[in-house]
């Protein structure tokens, strides 16, 4: 993609194409770093020069030190592993249920009329409202936490899959019919590839909600997990630990999202998208 007004000005210069390529490749992503880096350095300096004591809003150096200290003691890894395990279990269950129900309701209008109204009604309930009930039913340990995460993941995946299956192009399905595909062949060669792009989007938004709900789940009483680090940091007055846990969430969230995108990208190279380069 060209850079709008930039291109006209740059075309006048002799070495313009090469320069522009370098600009797009290296300089453009760096633009996004300017604001956070200036804020971080500014805050660091403000604390160094005594303009603020930095107790409630710790400067980057203190956050980094806390982060490294937690990592060295193995605490960070232990808590992160507990959280990742919960998200993985909840995500797995939510995706499985969402995919199956979404596919079934999308494929047959009878099951859609039968199930969709109920599921839409359940979707209207803020998922956190289930917490007391889940604790009563499943206890305060892992089962209730994983269930809450699974519920959070379920709905975006369900909606995404159902919408994608319903909106598969009738004309493309007809090509499958003209070539006499069997039911299984139609699913494998037409429906699955057709819904894949929307499925990836659904998985990504499901995963985002999974990370959101794991925090809620760990707030409701946990002895380990990044959410526990947050609560612990609040109760013991350690803001640096809270920010360190938040940073860990950000890194893990971005990493897992990038994993989905990276793993599915080879399957979606055919997509006719306006922007092929930007993530």
């Amino acid at each position: 993609m060209s850079v709008g007004g930039m291109s006209i000005a740059a075309d006048d210069i002799e070495a313009a194409p090469a320069q522009r390529a370098a600009w797009t490749r290296y300089a453009k992503p760096v633009l996004g770093l300017i604001v956070p880096v200036v804020l971080a350095v500014g805050w660091e300096l403000a604390v160094r020069f005594g303009l603020s004591n930095g107790r409630l809003v710790p400067p980057p150096s203190v956050i980094y030190a806390t982060f490294m200290e937690l990592a060295r003691a193995g605490e960070l890894q232990r808590h992160a592993a507990a959280t990742v395990a919960r998200v993985a279990a909840g995500f797995g269950l939510g995706v499985a249920a969402g995919t199956v129900l979404g596919a079934v309701t999308g494929y047959s209008s009878l099951t859609r009329r039968l199930l969709d109204p109920t599921l839409q009604a359940l979707r209207a309930i803020p998922s956190i409202a289930w917490v007391p009930l889940f604790i009563l039913w499943l206890g305060i340990f892992e089962a209730s936490k994983v269930t809450l995460i699974a519920v959070g993941v379920f709905f975006p995946v369900y909606l995404g899959v159902m919408g994608a299956v319903v909106s598969v192009d009738r004309k493309i399905v007809e090509v499958g019919r003209a070539f006499r595909l069997s039911g299984a062949g139609m699913i494998r060669r037409i429906l699955l590839p057709a819904v894949l792009p929307s499925y990836v989007v659904a998985l990504r938004s499901g995963l985002g909600l999974g990370w959101m709900f794991v925090v809620a789940a760990e707030f409701m009483g946990a002895s380990e997990g990044l959410g526990f680090l947050l609560v612990d940091g609040q109760q013991l007055g350690k803001p640096a630990q809270i920010v360190a846990a938040i940073v860990a969430f950000a890194v893990l969230g971005k990493l897992t999202d990038w994993l989905i995108v990276g793993l599915t990208a080879p399957l979606l190279r055919w997509e006719d998208r306006a922007r092929h380069t930007e993530a």
Partner: peptide
């Protein structure tokens, strides 16, 4: 058909 209806994938 009137349109090519190729499978985009």
């Amino acid at each position: 058909f009137q349109e090519p209806r190729l499978l985009p994938w």
